[in-house]
Design a binder for these strands. Structure first.
Lengths: 110, 110
DNA sequence: TCACTATATTCCTATCTGGTTGAGTAACTG
DNA sequence: CAGTTACTCAACCAGATAGGAATATAGTGA
């Protein structure tokens, strides 16, 4: 997979997935969902964002399969669709930590 | 890591990393670098993009540590900094493949 | 039916950024 | 030194989008 040649369409699909994660607001929502299912209102309260904004970002995440939605009466319960998104974030966070500690060593030895 | 609470700054850093990958042009450059080191001109030829455009995208990737640069006379040789970016792309590609095959099953079973 | 609540959607505006163009910089050649 | 090559930088424009306000939709209960 992802080997020899990649079609421009596939490239765009992959880029769109990354773009869905390339927004602090959406990362905050995903982070809030680590604790379990949440309704939109709960996410509004936790993140401090506007309701329309939260709803809109959740649509993006849901459209790309990063979160699952379950309707229950008036409420929409959102949850992490799987562990992939956490793996993605962990790789990036690992890089940032590695760079931060490397920079600290630079300052210490420099 | 990436556990309990994440500062808004960290959230922004992570989002910026994803944003660097959220562009088909940059993914095309990274893909071209899978085969080994390449000069800017080579990448221009392979991708069909403009030279200034390639150079600018490479600055972004380099600024976020995804590619390494080595200067040799007139040439700038770019290469993948490490395997992390491939792992990230593989996770996303794996998702896309899984969804594609699931959709095929949907169509087959109706 | 009407009001109320939770969520989704639409419209608007400010901001950001990808791509292009043209100028600028640095290294090699003669 | 001038000329060429390889690359980078700066300015511009067009398209995309995050955020907020207002509105729409849908479920609930009186």
């Amino acid at each position: 997979m992802a080997s020899e040649s990649m079609s421009p369409e596939l490239m765009r699909c992959v880029a769109d997935r990354f773009k869905a994660l390339a927004e602090p607001a959406r990362l905050a929502l995903l982070h809030a969902l680590r604790g379990g299912d949440r309704t939109v209102s709960e996410l509004v309260e936790v993140t401090g964002m506007g309701q329309a904004n939260v709803s809109k970002h959740l649509q993006v995440l849901h459209g790309h399969g990063f979160v699952a939605r379950r309707k229950d009466g008036l409420f929409s319960w959102y949850s992490l669709a799987d562990q992939d998104v956490l793996r993605l974030c962990d790789i990036v966070c690992g890089r940032l930590e590695k760079e931060a500690s490397a920079q600290q060593r630079m300052l210490a030895n420099g």
